[in-house]
């Protein structure tokens, strides 16, 4: 179990992580989702004791990482596929890591076979593709047979077969009762892998819920409504938990009410509606919706995706 309490990291005048608190439970895959620069890697480095938090604490199984008697046997982490001296072979890298904890040579061979690196293990890491680097990072994370596994963007650069393999591996590890915490900036990947999702944007936790709740977008059902009396309709629909946005002449987008409730209110108040379209939020959209105000770097060129149509809001 990983517990973060008011975890904060400030670099100069820039807050990378702004007082986040969350708990990662054992026995399930917890996804850590956020756009690039949201503070995922910084949070993970703080869990691993590599970066010192400006404020707050983070513990793994109740103890700060650095205080564990045998850290590699408690927590295995893939923080960066390139956390390796590239002039050393994969086998020697793992051997040196294993030596710190008297992990037997046999286990080094085991993790090499598990991650499919047997053929390239004696080659210098310099020549590795990003995918092979990721596999080596995962092999290093599993070396100490740890109870807690942290993987930062593990599927980056993997081929489709590798992506499926990581997906199955983390599910299997969680099914054994281990704590699995993996980050990604891809909602679609999380939807297939994670049981629980923590969404972070600009250093703040935006959502922390079972993946099902986030996918169904509870409280985020949107409906497109056209009416010749948009102002009057806005007034009629206004209420707690409901937001109505005038997007265009006679075009409204309503959040927090389902189409039936909207139609009922319109009928009761004698407002003509000539379009009523439920907007099915895709996972990607739900994620964009969650993080749209939290993205640090906005693209200047919008590609006509559904999201860009509403970027004028708020």
């Amino acid at each position: 179990m990983i517990e973060a309490e008011g975890l904060t990291k400030v670099y100069g005048d820039k807050t990378a992580v702004g007082g986040v608190s969350f708990t990662v439970q054992a026995g399930q895959v917890t996804g850590f989702l956020g756009p690039n620069g949201a503070g995922k890697s910084t949070t993970m480095r703080m869990i691993m004791g590599l970066d010192t938090p400006t404020a707050g604490t983070v513990t793994v199984n109740g103890v700060p990482f650095a205080r564990h008697a045998a850290p590699l046997r408690e927590i295995g982490a893939l923080l960066d596929a390139k956390a390796v001296h590239t002039s050393r072979s994969a086998y020697n890298h793992l051997l040196a890591m294993a030596a710190t904890h008297s992990i037997p040579r046999k286990r080094v061979h085991e993790v090499i076979d598990m991650t499919g690196l047997a053929e390239v293990a004696r080659k210098k890491v310099k020549g590795f593709s990003l995918g092979m680097g990721q596999r080596l990072g995962i092999a290093a994370a599993l070396l100490g047979d740890p109870q807690t596994i942290i993987l930062d963007e593990p599927v980056n650069g993997l081929d489709p077969e590798g992506v499926v393999w990581v997906r199955n591996l983390v599910k299997y590890l969680a099914s054994e009762g281990r704590t699995v915490f993996l980050s990604s900036h891809l909602m679609s990947e999380m939807a297939l892998t994670a049981d629980h999702l923590i969404v972070i944007g600009r250093g703040k936790i935006i959502a922390d819920a079972p993946i099902k709740d986030i996918i169904t977008g509870k409280g985020h059902s949107r409906t497109r409504v056209r009416s010749d009396q948009p102002d009057r309709l806005m007034h009629v629909l206004a209420g707690t938990g409901v937001s109505v946005e005038l997007q265009d002449h006679e075009l409204l987008e309503v959040t927090g009410l389902d189409p039936r409730q909207i139609a009922r209110s319109a009928l009761d108040n004698q407002v003509l509606i000539y379009e009523l379209t439920p907007l099915q939020a895709s996972l990607e959209e739900a994620y964009m919706e969650l993080t749209k105000d939290e993205v640090e770097y906005h693209s200047l060129i919008t590609t006509g995706a559904p999201v860009s149509a509403q970027s004028g809001g708020n």
Partner: peptide
């Protein structure tokens, strides 16, 4: 890349659960 990959990790089922939480093994002396 033609590396073969086993989905089943070498750590057998229940191995994690069976470990002694108080003494996980040798640390970095």
């Amino acid at each position: 890349m033609s590396t073969s990959t086993s989905t089943q990790p070498a750590a057998g089922p229940g191995r994690a659960a069976a470990r002694n939480a108080a003494n996980p093994g040798p640390g970095p002396s």
